Computed example of a mutant assay.
Amino acid sequence: MGIFERIKTQIFGKDGGPFGDNYFGQKKDAPKPAPAPTPAPAPVQQHAPAAPAAPAAPATPATAPAQPVDARAAIARIAEQKGNPALNWQTSIVDLMKLLDLDSSLDNRKELATELGYTGAKDGSAEMNIWLHAAVLRELGKAGGHVPEKLKD
């Protein structure tokens, strides 16, 4: 699993995410709806002609389409629950990674830069880190998250 995939999982959740909630803030222990009962087959009549079959109803998707997740709110909730207001995740890739309990070392940021297509020098410069932060937030938006425009710059 790539570093961006780990970031996305920490923010949006996978199997409940880091705080036991799924994408929509529902507890992972919430009961799942019971499947609809299967109707019993109608008795077969021996002498009556068979009625024409009713047209099939259009198939409905098994799950509702995903709604955009407010990535900023999800990250803010993680920060609040961890109680570490000193981390400036809104502008710092290092602080964002620390908040998500990910290794923010230069090697990991270089790997993340490669994953996201950074073409500049992978030297840990301010330019690279600013680009990484904006790229991560843009990619979160592409992955179904709602990210305010001011955080993507």
Rank of each mutant, 00 (worst) to 15 (best):
N88P: 12
A66T: 08
A74K: 15
N84V: 08
T63A: 03
A62G: 10
A59F: 15
A86M: 05
Q81K: 12
Q90W: 02
N84T: 08
N88C: 10
A79E: 00
R77T: 05
A64D: 12
Q67K: 15
A71T: 08
P65S: 01
P61I: 00
A56M: 05
G83K: 03
A76P: 02
A57N: 06
P55Y: 13
A86L: 06
A74Q: 03
R72P: 06
A66M: 11
D70M: 06
A71F: 00
A76I: 01
G83H: 00
Q90G: 04
T60M: 11
N84I: 04
A66C: 04
A59V: 15
P61C: 06
A62V: 12
I78R: 03
G83S: 03
P85G: 01
A54S: 12
T60V: 14
A71M: 01
E80D: 14
A59T: 15
P61K: 07
A74H: 07
G83Q: 02
A62Q: 09
I78Q: 04
A71G: 04
K82R: 08
A71Y: 03
P68R: 00
P68Y: 01
P85W: 01
A64Y: 13
Q81V: 02
P68V: 00
A76G: 04
A64S: 15
P85E: 07
A76T: 03
A79K: 15
A57C: 00
E80A: 15
N88Q: 15
E80S: 14
P55G: 15
